[in-house]
Amino acid sequence: MVLLVSETNDITTNEVVAWLNAYGATYQRINNDAYARLHRVALSNTKCNIQVAGIDPSCLKKVWHRRGSLRFLPEPLRNVTNLYPYLKKEEDSILKSIEDILRGQHDYVGSYHKEIENYKIDHLINAKEADLRIPDTLITTSKKELIRFFNHHEGIITKDIRYGIKLHLEDGKLFSSGTFVVTQEMIDTMDTDFGPTLIQEKIEKEYEIRIFFFKNRLYPMAILSQNDTKTAVDYRNYNREKPNRNIPVLLPGEIKEKVLQFIELSELSTGSIDIIVSKKGEYVFLEVNPQGQLDWVSKNCNYYIEKDIAEYLIAN
């Protein structure tokens, strides 16, 4: 049996499920919007026995952890405002252990750990290890360092170290603007010391590549946005009027090898990698998202990734 962990309305999971049905596969899907009973994680000197949401792990062949996580906290406890953050940490801890145990026993694709511990710096180091070019990067709390970095490069950008901000304030919402160019004027307004901030050299790009990967299979898509100032820095600042051209692209053999090497070093079994092809033709690694969106890559390039995933999950 195949186990899927996801969210109810996740289009990608729905499509994979449609394929699993077409192939007559047996599977169980657990969505993270309802309480899942944790029957037991029972340890003794002779055995380690787990049962979650009525599923006996010994019947499992493969697990696909698409999104979210199981929810072991019964509903009433989620609403206890002061206690919840603490209980959530307890829950997280056991989720991680269960994932590790299952990963040791089964083919487990995707990861809750990796998603919430998405450390950009670690990934950059792994990319460097894999001999991929990375942008010069600085994390600092010092204006002096920032100015030095700024003066050293033709242009610099900044982005979140881990997550984008999403705040609901009394007088409106506050969203992170993703990646943007840092200007002299911005720096002038800054204090001598500030919160840890990630800065990178700005790479002049020919185009961007988004690579969705599932195990060792790569699905690269080129995002052609370089002629449009609106999307020139980061394609995620979507250009509504004229959508980017998103088309299938191939990676040169040597780059493909390095990307696979990166995936191995980062111990990720699935995700999305962002790469820039610079004006000079260099492939520059930007970041990886461990639970990357694959729907738009699949649809724009006619890749049928969902079908491949279903076939992978039911293969012996």
Partner: peptide
């Protein structure tokens, strides 16, 4: 119309696979 792209590496831009599949 942005129907074409000028590139030093045309060999890296393959034709799209015109496969069609449907689970139902």
């Amino acid at each position: 119309e942005e129907f074409i792209l000028f590139t030093e590496t045309p060999e890296l831009f393959p034709k799209m696979d015109l496969q069609y599949h449907e689970p139902s």
